[in-house]
Design a protein around this nucleic acid. Sequence first.
DNA 1: ACCTGAACACCGTTCAAGT
DNA 2: ACCTGAACACCGTTCAAGT
Lengths: 227, 227
Amino acid sequence: MTERPDSPRSRRERPAKPALSREGIVAAAVELLRAEGLRKVTMRRLAQELDTGPASLYVYVRNTDELHAAVLDELLGTVGPAPREGSWRDRLEQVLTAYTMMLFEHPTLARAALTARPSGPNYLNLIETLLALLDEGGVPPAQAAWGVDMLLQLATAQAAEHSEQDASPTHQDDWDALVGALRNASPRTHPHIAATVGVLLSGPPRARMSWAFQTLINGIERTAVPE
Amino acid sequence: MTERPDSPRSRRERPAKPALSREGIVAAAVELLRAEGLRKVTMRRLAQELDTGPASLYVYVRNTDELHAAVLDELLGTVGPAPREGSWRDRLEQVLTAYTMMLFEHPTLARAALTARPSGPNYLNLIETLLALLDEGGVPPAQAAWGVDMLLQLATAQAAEHSEQDASPTHQDDWDALVGALRNASPRTHPHIAATVGVLLSGPPRARMSWAFQTLINGIERTAVPE
DNA sequence: ACCTGAACACCGTTCAAGT
DNA sequence: ACCTGAACACCGTTCAAGT
């Protein structure tokens, strides 16, 4: 299951030397992300892809983090608007799930998103959608406002953590080590772990994700913001 | 406000060439983290600190991620046991806050913790403590089990995101850009953002963190796990 | 003004060769 | 067996110099 670059030049036939521009750079970065993953979206590699030296990119992009944030906002456009059917709760979960799924495909991007917050139009639209749904559900505006932050954080963290894509051997080993440690926990020193280890590790990821969103929504509904 | 290595050899006088061992390596990594931050905890730099070549470390540590996970578990020992005073809710929040604060000092480590889960004894103890407190609060075991995962995820994500330490100019600029974008959101296209922008950005970080923990605890208390 | 070659100061990881 | 020098294949970012 190795990665295919798909085709080094897609979209158009790439004229000999397209003029540099921020949009062009970001577009090339997205293309590169799709083809080879974020780990390859480096200044040097991107410059190579654009037939120039790395220094040239710094005219349009402050640094690597900013580049990644721009890529994220671009991908956010993929998520699409809220569905029209179902309860506000279901629709809220659907939007969050769609956002999470998009990030699942690019775990490294999710990790970046946790720190470098995007501020592009697509991110704003997402926030607006979430606020509107919470409002529709009768959640007081203050709780909705603080809650949106948590919902996005949860979605991002889920993606950064559980990403199935990231089947790197190390990741798997870490997980196995944790599972082993939990299973072997002594009932004497760690009674609660021993008693609950079955549930601790149970449930398909989808079910846990759904439960997580509902749990957080329930909390947001019921927890007043300090005045 | 530049970083001081404090003193290249601390603790003991460092004999000419201490024998390599996993513990020695991890200890040196923690020392290096404290002195210069996780960004400097690289295989090469660590090897240099230990007077050897980078290849030698690979005998004891699988790779950089595993090294970071080991460092995290080591720091977890710092967090200490649950307090004895106060309601289970307060104590739960205190433990989570202590954990978060520890991670706040090392944002990069928090980011790493999101993916490379530790499985050392200190991590197990933390899980046990959280389970015990939820149990004391009468939260059904299944909800507590899934909830612990979320609580740790939230704490980690908070640290990775809001870390005040990470006052890197880029981070600040990103944030300013987002604030600007929210403030300028048109009431026509983004009515909910426009109406709520005050609260969206309000509140001291501590208050928001506390609210976030309480919100999640409330949700966990009230949301049944699918059978 | 805009662009970039070349350099600086780093990385992780592997492996053949040494002790 | 255990250890490691040296190499491979990369990084981000800066800046003096060119057009």
